[in-house]
Design a protein around this nucleic acid. Structure first.
Lengths: 184, 184
DNA sequence: TTGTTTACTTACTACTAAGTAAGTAACTTG
DNA sequence: CAAGTTACTTACTTAGTAGTAAGTAAACAA
């Protein structure tokens, strides 16, 4: 991948998180990178294909991270996962899911499918993490691990959204309560 | 308020929830209502003013509902509140906060302030509900009621977003766990 | 009855969006 | 060294977008 192509994807990622997929334009990318909008179309013929690459990159990052954390105790794995969200919070970003889910109905079928895949990947990792963590007495919680995973993900996702509106304390209040509830 | 003006606001509300504030256009309103786009500008000179009216209407509805529920036990109040979200889920809507928070940075200062007010109103109602509910032994939970209120709101908000992507079971799984956790 | 307001329409402007066709300079490969 | 490929630019099209100025028919008010 060329330098420019990388920069386009990174900037698109940032723009999706800050402004939303439908609100950013090619000008928001071409101007700061000092290229013409046709240069973006050269690398990504359509906006949808650019969006796909952003989501795919995020999924690769998730896979890399979880692989890296694999040998840690589950409570520490979860803590690392929260750390990714904290970092985004500090940078004024929301998570990709939190940005793309509201726009879901306006996305191309290809992007819809990719977003679905990302959601499933996150959910299955979190489910596994909680399940194993409970088995290893790192977590204490009631009910199905899959249900609990949905709760944790939804809390982290919304904490970034609410932080936008209510200030960054929303994130820290939510994430702290979350981890305490799990007995982590 | 005239009939047309009412219909414009209702349709804008639906469009914000389904497509997002930046993704809907005046054509999405003028065509189904069989008026010209200038008619919308007559009632709402700018898109921002239309958005403000949608949020204000939502805040009035919230105030009406909570007033109506005031004498119910707190667990039933919360159940009614969840019912509003369930209804939206069934209609394929997300909540206004869930739709407007990701677009927050692209909104006019006036809309940003109004969205903030809405978030504060929801949070303060939920906090009061949980606080009183715990006092009246209707709820059991650890920690500050305000923190818990943030968790509940963030779960409901994200449950609608995730339902878009993962199907409506996400809502029911999250809301069921939520209520069980509170001992409601 | 005349003047004013309400609720629009007609016809338009200024702008921005994504996307494309053709050209080009530099690098790579046989 | 020639041919092709890569990574763009130039210049453009098409199709929207929010928003506006001027006109109008009907209802209402003095």
């Amino acid at each position: 991948m060329t330098e420019t192509k990388d920069k386009i994807v990174s900037l698109a990622d940032k723009l999706i998180r800050v402004k939303g997929f439908n609100a950013f334009s090619y000008k928001d990318i071409s101007e700061p990178l000092q290229v013409k909008n046709a240069a973006i179309h050269y690398h990504f013929p359509t906006k949808s294909e650019l969006g796909l690459e952003v989501v795919e990159k995020e999924m690769r990052t998730l896979a890399e991270n979880t692989a890296k954390w694999k040998k840690l105790p589950e409570d520490e794995q979860l803590s690392k996962f929260c750390g990714v969200f904290r970092k985004h919070c500090n940078q004024g970003n929301v998570c990709l899911m939190g940005s793309l889910a509201p726009d879901y109905e306006t996305l191309s079928p290809e992007m819809q499918e990719k977003v679905q895949q990302m959601a499933s990947a996150i959910l299955s990792w979190m489910t596994h993490c909680l399940e194993q963590g409970r088995k290893h007495k790192r977590f204490r919680f009631k009910g199905d691990a899959g249900d609990r995973a949905l709760l944790v993900i939804s809390n982290l996702q919304s904490s970034l959204l609410l932080s936008r509106v209510l200030g960054p304390s929303a994130f820290s209040r939510i994430s702290r309560r979350l981890l305490e509830d799990l007995g982590a």
